[in-house]
Design a protein around this nucleic acid. Structure first.
Lengths: 162, 162
DNA sequence: CTACAAGTTCAAGTCAACTTGAGGTCAAGC
DNA sequence: GCTTGACCTCAAGTTGACTTGAACTTGTAG
């Protein structure tokens, strides 16, 4: 049989055991049983954790992720709301694409001040305001927690270029 | 002259006054002076706030945003690191694109369990692991705060579809 | 001149998503 | 049958990005 214990899963997925307990507590995953006191999970946990990790990367909260594909993998919200989430995602993707270009341009541009560079300002305009599709994103909720991008071997932010 | 006070800026950008004070404290923006005790900002603040908001949307921390374009709009990090940030962004964009497709598919698919749907699994595979470009994202940093997507008039996650 | 709305500072609180620590449990190996 | 190491629970702590509250200051309107 292919039941996995928490440390095995952690090894395979990189998700901390404490995080998995947290997810279980929040109802995002369920353990299929125990060996003694130790949790056992079915192999589907690997996909579920991948999905959770992915959702977090995309900026969804655990609550939202749970609503999109609960512990059983089935969505808890309507098709319509799922599409709405996808719409949000697409809007964000558009902004991020512009930001990526803006960053690459910034890395190359020789202008004394980026704010004065027309290319920079064009990307900024594209990335912020007016998304080129029908209804505006309508950021309703007042406050919204942040996410931090992971990777890119980073240095303390004041080095190596004169 | 076109000096703006904090509430005017808040009105125009939607950024809370308290958030702007926070940004100033953290060194992301600077006020150009005071009228009495009240902060005054130059018009460039609007672009800077747009940039900050954008950076947050993309999942960068305030520290990172500051390093990418400080209070003067100039990057505090090397061109190389800027490109690396853009690379991160692109990797994330790829994942989010797959996730968006996965969500749209989930909204339409009639399969009893999504995990058993080959299309679902294909998107999941595309979205997680193996990104189709050269070097892997190398998520180094151990723990990473979250971000939450804003908009999409959302309901409490258990409604309207029978 | 006085009131007042709108700003200010500073400390403390909040929230999500975990992590950490203390103290407990148990299957397995010697 | 006892030790050990991996896991457990539960409470408390951490981090980032703000928000909130209390007490204070001021330019402007009346």
């Amino acid at each position: 049989m292919k039941l996995l214990d928490i440390s095995e899963i952690s090894k395979q997925t990189g998700v901390a055991a404490s995080a998995m307990r947290h997810y279980e507590e929040k109802g995002l995953i369920v353990s299929v049983g125990r060996r003694g006191m130790k949790r056992l999970f079915g192999p589907e946990i690997l996909d579920q954790l991948a999905l959770i990790t992915l959702g977090k990367t995309a900026g969804f909260s655990l609550e939202e992720i749970k609503s999109m594909f609960g512990p059983n993998g089935q969505p808890q919200i309507s098709r319509h709301m799922l599409s709405a989430k996808a719409d949000d995602l697409d809007a964000q993707i558009r902004k991020m694409t512009s930001l990526s270009r803006l960053l690459r341009h910034t890395a190359d541009c020789k202008a004394p001040s980026h704010m004065e560079c027309p290319t920079f300002r064009r990307y900024l305009a594209a990335a912020s305001g007016h998304n080129q599709r029908k209804n505006a994103p309508t950021s309703k909720r007042p406050n919204t927690p942040p996410q931090t991008l992971k990777n890119s071997r980073n240095a303390p932010a004041g080095s190596s270029n004169s």
